[in-house]
Structures are given as structure tokens and as C-alpha cells.
Design a binder for these strands. Structure first.
Length: 552
RNA sequence: GGCUCCGUAGCUCAGUGGAUAGAGCAGAGGUUUCCUAAACCUUGUGUCGUAGGUUCGAUUCCUAUCGGGGCCA
């Protein structure tokens, strides 16, 4: 008996009461909130439905609760119904009804927790999108971890997700990159506004080694272009490898220039003209974004005929939509939050629904901390911490977990020294250890002849078993919320709770008999619970892109 | 100045209307003849930044304000 079952049971009761005329005419909900009470004395599950609904039937909450409670106590699997406080309905389940789900979890295996809430949704999720002027830094690493986890969470709800990376290999930043390469290749310092990391020397050397002609003999402009073309390609390959090693593989790498080359920009502008949202003023072509909530209109084509940055955004969005994506999600850093109003206005100008067809997730910055004080990362000084640095220091699992276990609204401090120590500070070990334990317990059980040939859920009556079962039961709901709120950190936090409940259970309840002891139905039933926990931990870790080791 | 994120235990943070606000870490003390002690148990600390408002009920929603980070000007 799951919270969803209880919710459905209450809804059926309400319908029946209404049909019998015991409830007045008012809309009935399709589901009610079922929660795990903080205080165990309040039962296994509780609902605030009476307080929420009594008003619309002109009843006081306690009377409403009593009406519902009377029917609920007749439902199979419910052992006890109490009314408490202002009108909470507290439910206690038969141990057997609570434990049934354990078997379901084991049988569902990798599919346990998956849902269909986003079935049929064709989604484009764009994240990282760093230009190839250097390795992925800490900020980009956070989006890689969170974005990929989010994609997996959406997929687990049935969505068809395309992971997309948008980049540009021309422009001022890239010019600085090319000039820096050239300077280093000539044995000079990087220019004032250039990039200073050691990787610049490395890329410069590789460009030289990979070219037959003597590019240093070319004039400045030609040499710079040669370094740009070759350097960008090498840099991009590095980025792709880093991401792949981090467990993140994009389906589409979208080149900004292709929008101009294919005429997509012109088509987007033509479309907006047709819709009547473009106008000319001061020699420039404008999009009237102020119609849709932006604080001022935006120039699309400047008076000198060049396209403004937003021209690419218009074309890119329209391109995504024309590729059939119902939902386009952009994950951007906090430094881009100012773009949100104009992007939303653009979406509305195309006749789409902002927030639905186009959604923008803003994530806060990642700071590097050393000895408790923030360190300023500077590309110029080469003190940037990269994805590879982080992975070298703590490994992929700890890195991905640390970056995805907190809300993206929260700025994140990364202390490399602390993470390098590999202390228990990092909760990924706690969760992974719990998983490894489930595997070793299962191995031991197998060698001692404990198998899953019997399952008698009424025997799972220890308090720690009730707690563990409840945590496992909540997993699908947590995944649903993680998808709905775009918050994969909820998965991580829940796994920590599951791991805690498992460790406490392990301390109280043995799966295998003491030496010389007989294997009983209880041992076999507990093996189901052990294995169900392994399933949940494994499924959850996989959504975060973190491995679930067999032993540690 | 405008916009945005944050403000909850000593530290790092969960908690998008419910009951006595939680976890990890740090501190103190304890647990192992038997499935992994990377574990478990016990123990202290809170004006949920502040002030109003909405509500039967607010850490949660609204308004104002203070403080910190960031972007833009």
C-alpha cells in the first residue's frame, strides 16, 4: 500500500460519500496529499485533506475528517485511523500492506521509480555551451553535472530528451584565444587581454606539431587565423573528451555560425516581421520585446548591418522549435540572468508560451575556496580550476555528486583541499557504501543458502524496517518532484535518507542467521528488503551519473 | 540606481501552507567473539535576518526593509 494507493482510496471514498448525499455539491480533488509524519506516533502516513477540503463543503475540518475516517478504517491494509489536531487524518498500515511494495521494487528492478508524467514530451535541454577558448571550468562543470542529471530525471519520466551544446568559434573571445596561442608559439607572453593558462602553451605546441607548413613565418593575420582554426578544433576535442570522461555525452553540438550560413537568421526575422513585431528606427532593425514584458526594445540588426547577439538567439530558438521540440530548456549561469526577459519576450513574439515552450534555468556561481577564503579564479593568471582538475582531485563520482546535491539557486563553494582529503564530509561515500553493503549482504546470503524463495511482509515489523520501507516507498514521488521542479538535487538528498535508514536497519536486523542458526522465512523476507534497497540506491545513483560500487 | 540569488544550529546545507523545524560535518561520550565500524547509538545549540500582511495555520505565499553574492547601468 503506497501513498498513491492511499490517495486514490480517499478520492474514491469522497466520491462515494458525495454519491450517497453525505457530502454537498462541490468539486472533488483527483488526489490528496499523503505525507510521512515527522513524529512516528502520528502513524505511518498522514493527510491534511480534511483541512484543505472541509471549507468547500461548509463543514469544519474535524467533522469532515471523522466522516472520511469512518470509511477509511474499512479499507483493506489500513490497521488504524486517527484524527489529530485541527483535522489531520493519521493512518497506520498493516505491516503486511506496508511491506508488499518491497517485492514490487525488486521485481521492477531498474524501472522502479520511473514514471510517465512526461511521456510524449520532446525536449531540448541545452547546457554547458562554453565557447572553445579553454577547458571547462568549475562553473561549466556544475552545469554538466546538473544538466545531465536533469536529462536523466526527465527521461525517467518518459521524456524524449536531446542534450544540446551551443557554441561559437568566432568573435572577440576566440580572437583573444588565437592571439594568445600565437604569442606563446613565438615564445612571448600572452597579450594583455589574452588567456594565460598552461593549456595555451600545450595547444600552441600541438598546433605547430600538427601543421606541415611553417605558420610562424606567415604574417600576423594569417598566422592568427591558422592558430584559430587549428586551436579551436583541438580545444573542442579536449572539451568533448573531458565531458565524455565525466559521463556527459551531448546529442547535438550546435554551431552558432550555421544559423547565419543556413539563412535561419533571415527566416526568423522574416517571421517576426510577418507577425508585426519588428520595426526600424535610427537605421537599425528592432524587435519590440517591450510588448512582452521586456523593459526596452532590442536591436536585432545594427545600423552598420551587422547582426546583434540576439539575432542568433531568435534563429536558434526557432530552429529548435522547427526541429520538433515542445519544450526548450536553457541552463544559464547567473551572469546571464539579464537575458531572461528578452528571451521570454522573444518566445512570446513567436506566439509561443513563455515558461512552457521556453524555460530558462539560472544557476548560481561556483566559488573556489582555499583555507576558508574565496580564491579569485582568473583565466589570465591561469588559476582557473577545470573539470579535469576537479576529477583528478576527487574522482568523477564525488565531483558529480558534490555538484548536483545542492539547489542551483544556491551558490556553491568548492574547497579542493577538503574534497581531496576524502573524509566523510562527502556524502557520496555514505550512499555508495550503503549500496556496497546491500551487495555484500546479498553475496553472503547466497553463500549461506538464504534466498528469496519466501516473502512474508508481515514479518517486517521492526521499527527500522518500517522506516526503511517508507523511504523506499517515497522514491517514485521524489523522482516526480525532481522532474517537475527541475531539481535533481532532490534525488541525492533522498538517497542520503535511504542510505541512513538502511544503515540503521542493518544494525538492527540480520539477513543471514548467526553461525549454526537456521535459515527462516524472516531471513528470506529480509533479503527482499535488502535487495529492494539496493535497487533504489542503484537507480538513484544512476540518475545522478554516479556509480554504484559492489564493494568499497 | 534597476534586476537577480541567498540569509534556517558553530560550519555546509535540506525543507515551495501543517503537528514538537531537520541532516551531514565539527565537539563530547559510547558500541564490534558473526552479514563491510566509510557504520550505529547517546549528547548541546535555533528571535527560520527584521517588520507588517494573507490564512484555521507561515520557515514556506505577498509587501516593505536590512545584510551578503552576482549581473546590468
Amino acid at each position: 500500500m503506497t501513498p498513491a494507493d492511499l490517495s486514490a482510496a480517499i478520492v474514491r471514498i469522497l466520491e462515494s460519500l458525495q454519491a450517497q448525499g453525505k457530502l454537498g455539491a462541490a468539486d472533488l480533488p483527483t488526489e490528496v496529499v499523503i505525507e510521512r509524519p515527522k513524529n512516528r506516533e502520528h502513524g505511518d502516513w498522514a493527510t491534511n485533506a480534511a483541512m484543505q477540503l472541509a471549507g468547500r463543503f461548509g463543514m469544519n475540518p474535524r467533522a469532515f475528517a471523522e466522516l472520511v475516517a469512518g470509511e477509511l478504517s474499512q479499507v483493506d491494509g489500513i490497521a488504524k485511523v486517527d484524527i489529530a489536531g485541527p483535522g489531520f487524518i493519521n493512518l497506520t498500515l498493516d505491516a503486511a500492506a506496508a511491506g508488499e511494495l518491497v517485492k514490487t521494487i525488486v521485481e521492477a528492478g531498474a524501472s522502479f521509480g520511473r514514471g510517465v508524467a512526461m511521456a510524449g514530451v520532446k525536449m531540448n535541454l541545452e547546457f554547458v555551451s562554453a565557447n572553445p577558448t579553454g577547458p571547462i571550468h568549475l562553473g561549466g562543470t556544475r552545469w554538466a553535472a546538473v544538466g545531465d542529471a536533469l536529462a536523466r530525471v526527465f527521461e525517467a519520466q518518459g521524456a524524449d530528451v536531446t542534450r544540446e551544446y551551443y557554441f561559437n568559434d568566432h568573435g572577440a573571445q576566440i580572437d583573444r584565444f588565437a592571439r594568445s596561442l600565437l604569442a606563446r608559439a613565438r615564445g612571448l607572453d600572452a597579450p594583455e587581454d589574452g588567456y594565460g593558462g598552461a593549456y595555451i602553451q600545450d595547444i600552441a605546441d600541438r598546433v605547430l606539431a600538427g601543421t606541415a607548413e611553417d605558420i610562424l613565418a606567415l604574417d600576423d593575420a594569417e598566422a592568427q587565423e591558422a592558430f584559430r582554426a587549428a586551436g579551436v578544433e583541438l580545444m573542442f576535442e579536449e572539451i568533448r573528451i573531458s565531458l565524455h570522461d565525466f559521463g556527459v555525452d551531448f546529442d547535438v553540438f550546435f554551431h552558432e555560425n550555421s544559423l547565419y550560413e543556413s539563412g535561419a537568421v533571415d527566416r526568423a526575422i522574416a517571421r517576426l516581421k510577418e507577425l508585426g513585431h519588428m520595426f526600424e528606427a535610427e537605421g537599425a532593425l528592432w524587435l519590440r520585446t517591450s510588448t512582452f514584458g521586456d523593459d526596452r526594445d532590442r536591436v536585432v540588426i545594427k545600423s552598420d548591418g551587422d547582426a546583434a547577439y540576439i539575432a542568433g538567439d531568435l534563429a536558434y530558438y526557432l530552429d529548435k522549435r522547427s526541429r520538433g521540440f515542445d519544450q526548450c530548456i536553457y541552463m544559464l549561469g547567473a551572469d546571464h540572468h539579464g537575458y531572461v526577459p528578452r528571451m521570454m519576450a522573444m518566445c512570446a513574439a513567436f506566439g509561443d508560451e513563455p515558461g512552457k515552450n521556453l524555460e530558462i534555468l539560472i544557476g548560481q556561481m561556483v566559488n573556489l575556496v582555499k583555507d576558508g577564503t574565496p580564491v579569485r579564479m582568473s583565466k589570465r593568471a591561469g588559476t582557473v580550476v577545470t573539470m579535469e582538475d576537479l576529477v583528478d582531485a576527487v574522482g568523477v563520482d564525488a565531483a558529480r555528486y558534490a555538484l548536483s546535491r545542492s539547489s542551483i539557486n544556491q551558490s556553491l563553494d568548492i574547497d579542493l583541499d577538503q574534497l581531496t582529503k576524502k573524509t566523510n564530509d562527502n556524502p557520496v561515500f555514505y550512499v555508495q557504501y550503503a549500496h556496497a553493503r546491500t551487495q555484500q549482504v546479498a553475496n553472503n546470503a547466497a553463500s549461506l543458502g538464504v534466498d528469496r524463495s519466501e516473502f512474508s511482509p508481515d514479518l517486517l515489523s521492526h521499527a527500522s524496517e518500517g522506516e526503511l520501507i517508507a523511504k523506499l516507498t517515497e522514491f517514485p514521488r521524489v523522482l516526480g518532484q525532481a522532474a517537475e521542479f527541475r531539481e535533481p538535487h532532490r534525488v541525492a538528498r533522498h538517497l542520503e535518507e535511504v542510505a541512513g535508514a538502511y544503515h540503521r536497519w542493518y544494525d538492527n536486523c540480520r539477513v543471514t542467521p548467526l553461525s549454526g542458526g537456521e535459515v527462516t522465512t524472516l531471513h528470506r523476507t529480509r533479503l527482499w528488503l535488502n535487495d529492494a534497497t539496493g535497487v533504489v540506491l542503484r537507480n538513484g545513483l544512476s540518475l545522478l551519473g554516479v556509480s554504484a560500487p559492489e564493494r568499497m
